[in-house]
Amino acid sequence: MLEVANLRSAYGRIEVLKGIDLDVQTGEIVALIGSNGAGKTTLLRTLSGIQPITGGEIRFKGERIDRLPPHLRVELGITQSPEGRQVFGPLSVEDNLRLGAYRRRDREIGQDRDRIFAMFPILAEKKHLMAGGLSGGQQQMLAIGRALMGRPKLLLLDEPSLGLSPLLVDQILEAIVSLKKDGITVLLVEQNASAALAIADRGYVLETGKVAYSGAGSTLLADPQVKAAYLGVA
């Protein structure tokens, strides 16, 4: 579904992605892990089109998309729940979700909203409140819900568990697994590497802008080097 080949990107003169090769098959959950500053967020930003690339290509369903503006990528079915949640603070929870479906013209937007409310009931309770007033965990649910409202074929999640309580982390991970059953393909960036690899079909480990390891989730979980460097186990 997604093929990334020799992808490069830079902030000014500093190259941050140094030739990434990665692919995501339809129906998979693929985890992307790596230490702080490895370039995970930058990679997701290039996929959504908000970070320019300096080389390489991105294909989605076989078509080059790396020159498309962000809104057309959303239209193709790539949506993102960004790092730091980035909800529309002054707007209501309901409006945040509605805007997630901004490019849709079908009649099932209300139905999808109700499904998000069923997935995260607290959002239904607070639907008329300003998103900026929600707790961090609730904002995270909202950011994921907003990305889902775009009816993605490929969902990009950037650290959905950051700063959440263990209970909420479990809830979010469960939600991600349930997305897979709905036929949504997921590319998941996580600090919480062991949890991410545990639910992922495959994983990639990024080190300073390059793919250092890749393989099945369970293989990476068992790999001694990955364990030592990223799973906090010696």
């Binding site: 959504s48 089109g49 908000i50 503006p69 962000p70 809104h71 959303v74 239209e75 949506t79 993102q80 960004p82 980035q86 909800v87 529309f88 603070g89 002054p90 707007l91 805007l99 997630g100 901004y102 490019r103 907003r146 990305a147 775009g150």
Partner: peptide, 13 residues
């Protein structure tokens, strides 16, 4: 106005 980055991510031109 509230969040330009997020606006682009939901597909607002």
């Amino acid at each position: 106005a509230a969040n330009r980055l997020a606006a682009r991510l939901v597909g607002i031109n």
